[in-house]
Amino acid sequence: MSLVQAGKTYNLGGRDFIELTDYSTEEIRYLIDLAIEIKRKQKNGEAYQPLLGKTVGLIFEKSSTRTRVSFEVGVYQLGGHALFLSKNDIQLGRGETIADTAGVMSRYLDGIMIRTFGHDRVVDLARFSTVPVINGLSDLAHPCQVLADYQTIYEHKGQLEGLKLAYIGDGNNMAHSLMIGGAKLGVSVSIASPEGYEPDSQIMADSRELAAATGATIEVVRDPREAVKDADVIYTDVWASMGFEEEQKAREAAFASYQVNEELAALAKPDYLFMHCLPAHRGEEVSEGVIDGSNSIIFDQAENRLHAQKALMAALIG
């Protein structure tokens, strides 16, 4: 069943993808529908190459497994050429301005994906670029992951509106994008974070305002048991994301009671889904019994990074 009206399409060509706030509920639903259709084509061996003759630059100031592999493979499967650019490969890492980098790359490329630390770098790159810019991850948002996540939930549950997602752990970029996506799609999101590690207050306020239109609720609580109660989805992330490794010991202490384990998961609905954006640290933020258990769909969501990002590139660049 489609998430949008049968036959309805949206012209997203030339747009940037910085965060889900930039897209309407119907546009996000359309992208999920497109991802599911592209996935079907790929599984059936049907050719679909809207990027034929096009080149997409992939800027990595922050290393990755899933983002790099899924984008490179995705561009290839769509008929295009992916150009991997680490911070050591381009002058951006040696002091060239974002404006100059964007101006030059726009003359060579048909689209740009950037995975970086500061969100302002994504915003500035999009501001000065004349080709679509996709946020592959910043310290504030991870919209590509969340687009794939809600696609995965929809595939397993057959719906999005009315579901409850519990996110346990650091109020980081994943929590931010999950709240915004949930608010847009009618999924209630309950975040459980220890004091000092809550999500950004402005993003919380924005998400609650967006949720008012879809009937979803956005809440931040201290007790993970309160967040997980009757949840359809349990989601967690590492306690110390890339760039915060020096805080590992302090975070282990702060998050000690926030592990997603069998006892906590028992408070969710029996058919709950367990999700993790990976990489995971088994025995820290999640027990082996949960992440490797029958409710876990971590590899389905990892696979859907490929399909969701192909949908993005087909819609924005193709």
Rank of each mutant, 00 (worst) to 15 (best):
M1V: 15
S2C: 00
V4H: 07
Y10P: 08
T25V: 06
I28T: 12
Y30T: 01
I36V: 13
K39R: 08
K43E: 05
Y48W: 07
E61C: 09
K62H: 10
T65N: 12
T67W: 02
S70D: 01
F71W: 00
F71N: 00
L83T: 06
L85C: 08
Q91V: 11
E96N: 03
E96M: 03
T101K: 10
M105Y: 10
T116G: 00
F117K: 03
D120G: 10
D120S: 13
R121N: 08
R127Y: 12
F128Y: 15
T130L: 02
V131F: 13
I134A: 09
N135I: 01
G136A: 13
P143T: 14
Q151A: 13
T152P: 14
I153D: 13
I153N: 08
Y154H: 15
H156A: 14
G158Y: 07
Q159S: 13
L163S: 04
L165Q: 08
A166G: 02
D170Q: 08
D170S: 01
M174W: 09
H176A: 15
S177W: 05
M179H: 02
S190Q: 12
S193V: 13
P194I: 05
Y197S: 03
E198L: 05
E198S: 10
A212R: 15
G215H: 03
A216S: 04
T217Y: 11
T217L: 11
V220C: 10
D223C: 05
P224S: 04
K229M: 10
D230C: 07
A231I: 10
I234M: 11
F244C: 03
R251H: 03
N261D: 15
N261G: 11
E262R: 09
E262M: 10
E263M: 01
D271F: 02
D271W: 14
Y272A: 07
Y272I: 01
E285T: 10
I297V: 14
F299R: 05
F299E: 01
D300C: 00
N304M: 08
M313K: 02
